[in-house]
Design a protein around this nucleic acid. Structure first.
Lengths: 100, 100
DNA sequence: AGGATAGGCAAGTGTCCGCTTGCCTATCAA
DNA sequence: TTGATAGGCAAGCGGACACTTGCCTATCCT
């Protein structure tokens, strides 16, 4: 379950894709391809990007909607919360309200 | 930079180690080894765990302090923040104070 | 219909990485 | 000093994964 999330985040190209979708949501596969190529100088094939998107979708980080022959991709940051929830920041050492 | 962080989180055994250090900080290599073996039924060699700890330390997620022949390991959750900072939650759609 | 565009499936390849094995160093106790 | 404990270094192996290539399906436009 969480395995898919961390595996998806492990690849730098996939993280760049998330960056692009954060900047502009609803991009198609070809748009993402050209952005990776132009902005980030990433020489990667269309199928490579498609496979990355599949991994991101399996992790719940990307959601897709189909319209005709277009498939739009949207970022979903919700799964990222379980990371900081799993290893929460330590309780502050200063004086605190006792919640008992 | 962030590369080390995500790579460190990518492995399930390393995430379990973080769990153990979150539960009890300041464990030695041998303590972590026996916990992985007993609690989690993970058959892994001492060197395997040692290598995992090195990766976690390179990512800043684990800090170590040496005392005599013992080396204690502590969890540091601070690097996790850059994840949620990189892809922040979308602005709420409800009525909001205009910050202009 | 037919071409063009947007995307998908599957097999093959090279590389990185998790893990083990074997040996070495350092600190402590008897 | 000798043995035991805690940890480190380096080479080697096997599997997972990112990426490519080649071909196929679906939708749109003229």
């Amino acid at each position: 379950m969480a395995d898919d999330l961390f595996k998806a985040l492990a690849d730098p190209t996939r993280r760049t894709i998330l960056d692009e979708l954060a900047e502009q949501s609803g991009q198609t596969l070809f748009e993402i391809c050209s952005r990776l190529s132009m902005k980030h100088r990433l020489g990667i094939s269309r199928q490579g990007v498609s496979q990355h998107l599949a991994v991101l979708e399996a992790a719940g980080l990307v959601e897709t909607r189909r319209e005709g022959r277009y498939k739009f991709h949207d970022l979903n940051t919700a799964p990222l919360r379980q990371i900081t929830e799993r290893w929460p920041a330590p309780a502050p050492s200063g004086p605190e309200e006792s919640p008992s």
